[in-house]
Design a protein around this nucleic acid. Structure first.
Length: 639
RNA sequence: GCUCACGUAGCUCAGUAGGUAGAGCACUUCCUUGGUAAGGAAGAGGUCACCAGUUCGAUCCUGGUCGUGAGCUCCA
């Protein structure tokens, strides 16, 4: 019998008979603990089941249940187990589609006439537990494509047949556990008993293959862990995340509102939220002034002809609100600010000596989002972009992009965001402009990122219709990445609007245009900020920095004086002069997440001081009002 | 837009075999003047999202509309 040499990475190779299973090899090559935690093996870039027979020399990398890969394998297996449970409970005529692992768990899509309801959850979960307890082995079989096709056709599983139609390989693998058989690449856990913690999370509709023209399937989402403790931890984190939800905090802290009176996706900034916004805007304007930008203001509507010239009517009309007639001329509300800045560019002849021109605007735009897409502040129909357009010479392009990235990261860091995913998006299916220009622009973006030493991922086909872009997605505390910053090169609008500048040769040339937004939309950015800080904004952003609390009516006069003095000194201060006990006032201030409580009793009144309580419950030594004001002033320097 | 769920006082939520509703907090008034997370009492507050239908009678049942949530799709 032939022999093969197997080893683990870094370990000594041992000789085995050909056909040894991965499980046997791991048993011989690994220590007890590693052996126990191994759920699959990796050979090169292939993941194999433990039951796989090995026929060639190989270096085996054990996949531990503690690794991300190991968890994904469990969850993928959990989706099969759930599908088995569903088929057993609701009959074999139910159509099964696909069931992969996801970031937080897994899902499986089913086609069934009757909708699943949350009432079904208990039954499905119970059946999953039974299957897990039965310790059914997962077994893999390989069969020729045609045979697999016949097999699933006979079972009436048309989605599987459709999947097989797209597979080009000669053979495919199927997995069985109990009576359930599924087309699957694998690998899987050795047996169902490893599924120790399972929970059905929710049900949602999902189009077959993500295509809204195809049938809507019922997607069951679940999550799974090797250990019940891990599941508990995950559910606790979900609960914590819910507490930070910007929609909940926005209501509680009276930051913003969405009113049925006004309409969906349209944000009302309440006084406290509006104050935070003003602080953000002031900082933004100062920072842009320092970085050589000039501020613009432009209207909210423009003639439809302009949107025809810009190409928006060809490529963006589905996202635009309907036109309105004004004196027999059609106008349309703006979904973007760029054509207006071009309007300003064209107010006179431009010289190359003016370049780069950096124009910024907090421009409010309106986009027709489908109702189902709206979500709190994160996805709205009217929002303000921190927009800018840079007009420059081709040879200035790379440096300008480099400068934008610098300013971008600086501003994000000021707000407390230091983790991001960076994407370079290339040409989409629907686009304008020449292939050559697209290539030039894409190269310039790539170059700037590489010079800056930033790690990025290429997102093929995700560019905007007028040019390629860099997107910087910031990560909030919930681990969600939010697309805020975007930097887009545009060789197209200058062409469409016939932009020109006079160059050294005294002839007209076409400038390059860059679009960029750093916070993206003030609404979304505010939403991310609320969740990031759980509503407890840093001092420099807090809408109310200090709250004056008198203990009894006897200090009302002094408390009023303190309040006025702090207000005059530029502290954002409120007062709570109500006839309530101190405990009560402190509780409310604490829930409002106000950074400093200024407590005024008889002692303070006599000595003309204040006692300061911090948001974390600590107290500062009594100090004079002016010292406190100075302290706040120093500590609330931006960033 | 599509699938599923939900919509009761400013907020969080009970409730009704179909007989026009209730709590806590918030609000108003009064008592209380209390040193670091809820003092007490009274009062006011609702076309039970909206529109139809079934019914002697609808907040409850049916249908539609609007809105919200979770997804799909899309995106700042």
């Amino acid at each position: 019998m032939a022999e093969i040499r197997l080893s683990t990475a870094g370990g000594e190779a041992k000789t085995f008979p050909a056909g040894t299973t991965a499980a046997e090899a791991i048993k011989a090559l690994c220590s007890g603990r590693e052996r126990k935690s191994t759920v699959a093996v990796r050979v090169g870039d292939r993941l194999l089941d433990l039951s796989e027979s090995l026929t060639e020399d190989a270096i085996l990398v054990p996949v531990s249940r503690d690794s991300r890969e190991g968890l994904d394998i469990l969850r993928h297996s959990a989706s099969h187990i759930m599908a088995q449970a569903v088929v057993e409970l609701y009959g074999p005529d139910i159509q099964v589609a696909i069931g992969p692992a996801t970031e937080d768990g897994f899902y499986y899509d089913f086609d069934r006439k009757e909708p699943f309801t949350p009432d079904d959850f208990a039954a499905i979960e119970a059946r999953v537990q039974e299957i897990a307890a039965a310790n059914l082995p997962f077994t893999r079989e390989t069969l020729p494509l045609a045979e697999a096709r016949k097999f699933f056709q006979e079972k009436g599983q048309s989605y599987k047949v459709e999947l097989l139609d797209d597979i080009e390989a000669e053979t495919v693998s199927i997995y069985r556990q109990g009576d359930f058989v599924d087309l699957c690449r694998g690998p899987h856990i050795p047996h169902t008993g490893l599924l120790q913690a399972f929970k059905l999370m929710r049900i949602a509709g999902a189009y077959w293959r993500g295509d809204e023209k195809r049938p809507m399937l019922q997607r069951l989402y679940g999550t799974a862990f090797y250990d019940a403790k891990e599941l508990k931890k995950y559910l606790f984190q979900l609960e914590e995340a819910r507490k930070r939800d910007h929609r909940k905090l926005g209501k509680e802290l009276e930051l913003f509102a969405i009113s049925e009176l006004v309409g969906p996706g349209l944000i009302l900034w309440l006084p406290k939220g509006a104050l935070v916004r003003r602080i953000i805007e002031d900082y933004w304007k100062d920072e842009h002034y320092r970085n050589g930008y000039e501020l613009l203001y432009t209207p909210h509507i423009a003639k439809r002809d302009m949107w025809a010239t810009s190409g928006h009517l060809d490529f963006y009309v589905d996202d635009m609100f309907s036109p309105m007639e004004v004196e027999e001329v059609s106008y349309q509300i703006k979904p973007m600010n760029c054509p207006f800045h071009i309007g300003i560019y064209k107010t006179r002849k431009r010289s190359y000596r003016e370049f780069p021109i950096r124009w910024c605007e907090l421009g409010t735009v309106y986009r027709f989002e489908r109702t189902g897409a709206l979500q709190g502040l994160m996805r709205v129909r009217g929002f303000t972009q921190d927009d800018a357009h840079i007009f420059c010479l081709p040879e200035q392009l790379e440096e300008e992009i480099f400068n934008i990235i610098d300013l971008n990261l600086h501003i994000l860091q000021t707000f407390g965001f230091s983790e991001y995913d960076i994407y370079l998006s290339t040409r989409p299916e629907k686009y304008v402009g020449s292939d050559e220009n697209w290539q030039k622009a894409t190269d310039a973006l790539k170059m700037a990122l590489e010079k800056k030493g930033l790690h990025y991922t290429v997102d093929p086909g995700e560019g905007v219709f007028y040019g390629p872009k860099i997107d910087i997605k910031i990560k909030d505390v919930l681990g969600r990445a939010w697309q805020c910053s975007t930097i887009q090169v545009d060789f197209n609008l200058p062409e469409r609007f016939q932009l020109a500048y006079t160059a050294e040769d005294s002839r007209d040339h076409q400038p390059i245009m860059i679009h960029r937004a750093l916070m993206g939309s003030l609404e979304r950015f505010f939403g991310v900020l609320i969740e990031h800080y759980a509503g407890a904004f840093p001092l420099w952003m807090a809408p109310v920095q200090a709250l004056v609390l008198n203990i009894t009516d006897a200090q009302l006069d002094y408390a009023e004086r303190v309040y006025q003095e702090l207000r005059q000194a530029g502290v954002r201060v409120d007062k709570d002069a109500r006839n309530e006990k101190l405990n009560y006032k402190i509780r409310e201030a604490q829930l409002a997440k106000i950074p400093y409580m200024v407590i005024i009793g008889d002692k303070e009144k006599e000595t003309e001081t204040v006692t300061v309580r911090l948001r974390d419950g600590k107290n500062l030594e009594p100090m004079s009002v002016s010292d406190f004001a100075e302290m706040i002033r120093k500590m609330s320097r931006v960033g």
